[in-house]
Design a protein around this nucleic acid. Structure first.
Lengths: 218, 218
DNA sequence: TAAATTATTTAGATTAGTCTAAAACTTAAG
DNA sequence: CTTAAGTTTTAGACTAATCTAAATAATTTA
């Protein structure tokens, strides 16, 4: 059994591990809004519990046990997000904080029943895959809009940034999950992208950063 | 904003206050599975926050603010229990521990939406009233089976003991909420009660203690 | 490759909640 | 009304998670 805090560390290490081989102390401190010294202390503790492999000064990776726990936390987070949006009618930009609390409720039975109640959803409201009860995750082939060429189409299937501000911005532009986009033009000087949504006449322009953070399937 | 622990103290003081004028240190220690010294420390803290009126050596009562928080915790607890039983199909003896965790999720909006999702239930799965969002509680006129006379009838509407063992025992005897009972006989030597359920021929006998812990309306 | 910069760890302190043991207070009994 | 018993509080210590400041290791730069 882990504490709330330990689970947050494991989850964060897990997420950061998707982008890089190993995770550094400062990265963790930044994401967890804490100080490097605090992170070091926790890494020692998690290492003693054999939930991570920790080499001082060189970073950290999850052990199999640690990874399993992290995936469970992610599963719970995404299932609760799905519940909040689909059953309680929250909007996709409102659910993150609540799910941050709900993900630490420990009962395995509760999560499995919740999963069943909702019909075993595969993706959360932001398009992220929901691990199943055995920790298996559907691997999806998403790529950012920034990698599309002019005239290429795609269906919006996920986001790489979950801040309410960004999600509200997408909603305002009708860039919601399931909508089809077509790239009209990529401006040379700032790589901003002009595109249309669902065959509409209306052209909208998004920055390079936004284009990197919207994921599509073709 | 209170911590998890503070909320548990307030909730416990609230519940114990229903039976007695003021609540003592040792009572709290017993219910919270902690030591009297720890309770004293917490009472000082809650007193400084003006959530309780605390007179050293003489016990404690809730202030209006403290009571409001306690009622909110109770509301969340009972709403989550209702959810677990009605939506996730848990049995009434399985939900207490989970609700103990869920009750501390802080979002007011979450609880109100949950309440709405379930159609504003008035009673939880054990027959306890669920406070509304303004903290109002339906006062019900329940009395224990032990106060019925021979030949009196009643509808089982609540319990005064929530342990899984007791709830499972009631389920086995078909002494579930909504069922009608009739007192056939009260034995003189130990005040155990013989009764029938839902007009059945079958007579069952329960101890004085059990009779005290089952509440009926007439 | 030595110096400067950056990243990380160590040392020592803090806060919340808890504990044991001892002291102080209240209540009950004779 | 004094003593004994029981209850509550105080004193001092512990653990988990955090912090700041200082020390040390790694990396970058000249």
């Amino acid at each position: 059994m882990q504490t709330f805090t330990e689970e947050n560390y494991l989850k964060t290490i897990y997420k950061l591990s998707e982008d890089a081989e190993s995770v550094t102390t400062n990265q963790l401190a930044a994401v967890l809004h804490t100080k490097a010294a605090s992170v070091t202390d926790m890494l020692k503790k998690l290492s003693e519990k054999k939930l991570i492999d920790y080499i001082p000064y060189y970073g950290v990776t999850l052990t199999e046990t640690g990874k399993r726990i992290a995936v469970d936390v992610v599963r719970r987070h995404r299932l609760w997000e799905y519940f909040l949006v689909e059953k309680l009618n929250f909007k996709w930009d409102e659910v993150h904080e609540m799910a941050e609390e709900l993900e630490h409720i420990s009962s395995v039975e509760l999560v499995d029943r919740l999963d069943q109640f909702m019909g075993h959803p595969a993706y959360d409201p932001h398009g992220d895959p929901i691990p199943d009860k055995h920790g298996r995750i559907k691997q999806h082939e998403f790529k950012p809009i920034s990698q599309l060429s002019v005239d290429e189409c795609g269906v919006i299937s996920g986001v790489r940034e979950h801040s309410p501000a960004f999600l509200q911005y997408l909603e305002k532009l009708n860039l919601m999950l399931g909508n089809q986009i077509r790239v009209i033009e990529v401006l040379v000087y700032d790589q901003s992208v002009v595109l249309t949504v669902n065959q509409s006449e209306n052209k909208i322009s998004i920055s390079k950063e936004a284009a990197k953070n919207i994921l599509v399937t073709s």
